[in-house]
Nucleic acid binder design. Structure first.
Lengths: 134, 134
DNA sequence: CGATTGCTACGAAGGTCTTCGTTGACAATA
DNA sequence: TATTGTCAACGAAGACCTTCGTAGCAATCG
């Protein structure tokens, strides 16, 4: 039950969401500046993007002031979970262990990360998964 | 070094790859039949898709017979790893442990899966990841 | 006041994705 | 042989995605 209330963010949308998660609520200018540090684009690109994302429900807009302020509608964790679930369905036949296996096969999985992961698993063993809404 | 030799498969492409991974090398007809069980589409949709995927290098085509035969160019595991790495970069800041955490937060992570995952980690501890080419 | 600056809105271009109809070649069959 | 069926190849439509230029409006500066 319950289809994803918000659509899967595209690449450019995700880039913007990353900015909003890091900075907290921001103006178009602020988003644009942050994005441009990585890759120079026009101001109106960020603007248009945020407008579209507002329509899609990916961000919320406060337009009480002349300069609008945007904030992400879902937390970083919620979005990450949604993306993982999506990938799980699309490419892993729903098998979380296979996904974890591939995550571990990544060079990025450092020793510290493995320790961290083990702690995670020990922490919640077979037992229940907290209720999640996405 | 080395940018992804093959592009990230799109949704429809992934659906076709799933068929090829499961069935092994297949004709357009066979792919189409398998896809249509899930969601009815025209034969030429599968055909066009496979033609495009051939151009992109996602599949390999044997056209020695009149009826061409297609096979995936990368294994399921290679593709999965590529997708995980991609998601890691786009949405997790490269943190594998965060990704695993979200995978575990999924209902699908059953008790058996957790056991399986723990075995994986114990199996390879901090040590090195086998060489991987994608 | 007039000019410049900063903002939103809008339209549109150029790209990719997915879908399908049509065409022409070839094969199988009546 | 004439018809029917199967196949690959296009082309093109319609939907998104991403990017930007332009326009219109408010505020601010000289």
């Amino acid at each position: 039950m319950s289809k994803p209330s918000t659509p899967r963010p595209t690449d450019a949308e995700l880039a913007i969401l990353r900015v909003l998660w890091e900075r907290g609520q921001s103006t178009v200018r602020q988003v644009h500046d942050a994005l441009s540090r990585e890759r120079p684009t026009a101001y109106t690109t960020a603007l248009k993007m945020l407008q579209i994302m507002t329509e899609k429900g990916l961000v919320r807009r406060d337009d009480s002031d002349r300069t609008h302020v945007y904030q992400p509608r879902l937390s970083e964790e919620q979005t990450q979970r949604q993306l993982v679930r999506d990938l799980l369905d699309r490419a892993f036949g729903g098998s979380a262990s296979k996904l974890v296996m591939q995550a571990l096969a990544t060079k990025r999985a450092s020793a510290e990360e493995l320790t961290e992961i083990r702690r995670l698993i020990d922490g919640r063993d077979g037992r229940e998964v907290r209720d999640d809404r996405d």
